[in-house]
């Protein structure tokens, strides 16, 4: 089965004095249906690698292939479109739009993609939130939800456009153990659905232990891990 994402020698350096290398010559592949954990000490380049995979950042060197397609020549708009259609992001601090309700936050990517009309997008958002156990809180603003609930709204938003890859950056970092476990279970559940893969940056040993594969980083280098296989 061909990889959803393939990194070939990705390098990212901040142009400071002296230059700071965030990611150095990272090469690996993410197979469909896999749950991959990126682990390592703080500041080793885990999040930077995740941003490169999600095309939020451009590598200074190397090639990123998404479903076999080289993303190097893509324009900013084309990268945004690809992100909208194929990726879902989850962050440590949920990063929901505070002035939108849970339902509106989840509808946002669907409405921007434009494949569903407003009502259909709301119906799907409602369904996703219900599946994640917060169907009764769709009208709440993020400020009126608990940390665990917000993160589940963020997961629902990440799943909204039915992506092939979920990129999660410390998704349990700000949650208590009960909510952390719930989020991890959800991520494991969504990984593998329709060949979807999850790449999760984490400090949590339990998440890493339960992952199908691990990429270990140190000072911007991948020190362990490589091409991953589906579970």
């Amino acid at each position: 089965m061909s990889a959803i994402v393939e990194a070939r020698g990705l390098t990212r350096t901040l142009p400071l004095d002296p230059p700071v290398t965030l990611v150095d010559d990272a090469s690996f592949a993410i197979a469909p249906g896999s749950f991959t954990a990126i682990v390592g000490p703080s500041g080793c380049g885990k999040s930077s690698l995740l941003y490169l995979l999600g095309m939020l950042d451009r590598p200074d060197d190397g090639t990123l292939l998404i479903e076999g397609r080289d993303t190097t020549p893509l324009s900013g708009d084309a990268r945004a479109r690809l992100r909208l259609e194929r990726f879902g992001f989850i962050f440590q601090f949920h990063f929901l739009l505070p002035e939108l309700t849970a339902l509106e936050n989840v509808s946002l990517p669907m409405r921007r993609l434009g494949r569903l009309d407003r009502h259909a997008a709301r119906d799907r958002a409602h369904m996703l939130l219900s599946e994640l156990g917060i169907g009764e809180k769709t009208a709440k603003l993020p400020g009126h939800l608990s940390g665990g609930e917000r993160q589940r709204v963020a997961i629902a938003r990440a799943l909204a456009n039915d992506p092939v890859l979920i990129l999660a950056d410390e998704p349990t970092g700000s949650l208590d153990s009960v909510n952390s476990q719930r989020v991890v279970d959800t991520l494991h559940q969504v990984a593998g659905e329709q060949g979807r893969a999850v790449v999760c940056v984490t400090h949590d040993g339990a998440i890493a232990a339960n992952a199908d594969a691990r990429i270990e980083m140190l000072d911007g280098h991948i020190v362990a891990g490589g091409t991953m296989a589906a579970s």
Partner: peptide, 13 residues
């Protein structure tokens, strides 16, 4: 911050 969120979701410049 919302701008960064929207960009990560897939909104263009």
């Amino acid at each position: 911050r919302d701008i960064a969120i929207l960009r990560s979701v897939g909104f263009s410049e």
